[in-house]
Nucleic acid binder design. Structure first.
Lengths: 279, 279
DNA sequence: TTAAAACTCTAAACCGACATTAGAGTTTTC
DNA sequence: GAAAACTCTAATGTCGGTTTAGAGTTTTAA
């Protein structure tokens, strides 16, 4: 085999890279053809240049930027590569943590959509066992039942900002809800107590994390916040009629939220629930 | 709290988003301000629009593209979201697998650089225990010792292409090496047998994967392929002088490769090695 | 030798999801 | 009423390429 020159196409082919990428690398000075015809401006490479191209591709595979690769190749400084790689390692770890959260959130969302499709119709009352849950919560500063949706939106924003401020993963910001003290519920008053988002075990521990115990709940389904007062009343009446003993605080839980139908209103699927004791 | 209008800046602030992003979303029709002043063209939002913006941010956090989000919001089709999310889930899993390989490769590279800095000087002969290794290998079709570096480069390319063709992770393409039969080595001939890359346990099983057993090796260090014949000879002589019994095939291993100093030659750190038996 | 096929050239535009900038106009605050 | 703070549009930059158009060059086959 002779010391042949390779055209850009040949060089591209044996290196599994595109011709335009090779031209780009020439342009930014990452790897220059060993010979360029002065007339035709055709680029010609040498098979020995594969070494450099391999190195470039390897560093790219490690996630380094072209600028960094160029710097490293120009300086010939192994300390520089090392510092870049150490930085990159941290980055990759962060990315992986993010992807993990994302994957969990995607799964939750798909499940939530499935549940939505198979859920009972509006107004249905059920008695369900609900496993324990974890919530990230904040006490409400105003009783939004006395005001409109705007106040609720504000409270929700504050909850979200609190998550952001504490550098916690924002991806749980679906499946929100509110609670109300058992006493208020029993009196038929609507008094918000706290606002929350459901989180899972991946969520970092903090003071704002509470556990809602598992148990039997009497539930009613609805699809708009506006109807909450009416449906909460129905729920209470149902419990009284059946002599169920209410064992804890009332929860209004967003099962699915897709404001896809209306620009301004939250398109929702809600479940109001109170724990009941049978003994 | 009144039904106030929010300026773009206020809207941006409460939603932890930039003003320019809000303008972009307006432009592409993802979320339009509920009112635009006809004179000043100032944009004004309503706090109830947070619902839609939240939804957008949530879908973005799930890794959906703006185009997809727009489609979903416009169609109001939960089936569409689901199909997008299922696709996305696969994507995320692939990305995670890639990042895992990348992380391992970065660690290997950092280690390799460290080793390079602490390694014995060129020509040093050592007797080392080397743990077992796994290699992805191909028999050489030409004895490149009889030809130049070009032939070696070609063989290396073929090995790489074989990895690509079989859809195996390319990131192992560092730490290459060659082997030679024990008999050839003993006769002082240089006859390449196979060319390989070192892989780890993450690498998928295949017919081309071989195991090199752990054991005691007599090694010599060098920094250029050109010197291999001479150093291989020294290694053989050393073994003979000390009456070491050569117990297996000769290996030429690239410990560190950084062609950062020279455009055309592989800047390398090599270790020639033969297993020896003491009993 | 010549025509066709295959290749290569430069320069510019495109991708996505924004960020930035310039220069002009508007609203709020003091 | 002035200054500060905000907002507007339109254009440009970011990264790592890919694509395209239109022109020129090299190789292949007849």
């Amino acid at each position: 085999m002779k010391n042949e020159l390779l055209s850009i196409g040949e060089m591209a082919k044996i290196n599994n890279i595109s011709v335009s990428t090779l031209r780009l690398y020439d342009e930014i000075g990452l790897i220059k053809p060993c010979y360029t015809d002065k007339e035709s401006r055709y680029r010609y490479y040498n098979i020995r240049q594969n070494a450099r191209l391999d190195m470039i591709q390897y560093m790219k595979a490690l996630g380094m930027e072209l600028k960094e690769i160029k710097e490293v190749l120009e300086s010939g400084d192994t300390k520089l590569i090392e510092s870049i790689l150490i930085r990159r390692k941290k980055q990759v770890k962060e990315q992986m943590a993010n992807l993990n959260l994302q994957l969990a959130a995607i799964s939750r969302t798909i499940e939530s959509l499935e549940r939505y499709r198979k859920s009972p119709s509006i107004g249905t009352i059920t008695i369900e066992y609900i496993p324990h849950r974890k919530i990230y919560s904040m006490p409400t500063s105003i009783n939004f039942y006395d005001y409109g949706i705007e106040v609720y939106e504000n409270e929700l924003k504050e909850l979200k900002n609190s998550i952001i401020k504490h550098n916690l993963p924002q991806i749980y910001y679906c499946n929100a809800g509110t609670t109300m003290k058992k006493e208020s519920f029993l009196e038929g008053k609507l008094e918000s107590d706290e606002i929350f988002v459901l989180v899972d075990d991946n969520f970092p521990q903090s003071d704002s994390i509470k556990r809602i115990e598992s148990g039997m709940y009497v539930c009613i389904y609805l699809d708009s916040f506006d109807d909450e007062p009416e449906y909460a009343k129905r729920l209470l009446e149902y419990c009284k009629e059946n002599n169920y003993k209410i064992a804890g605080d009332y929860i209004c839980e967003v099962l699915t939220e897709f404001s896809v139908f209306d620009d301004e209103k939250r398109g929702m699927f809600l479940r109001l629930q109170v724990p009941v004791a049978f003994r």
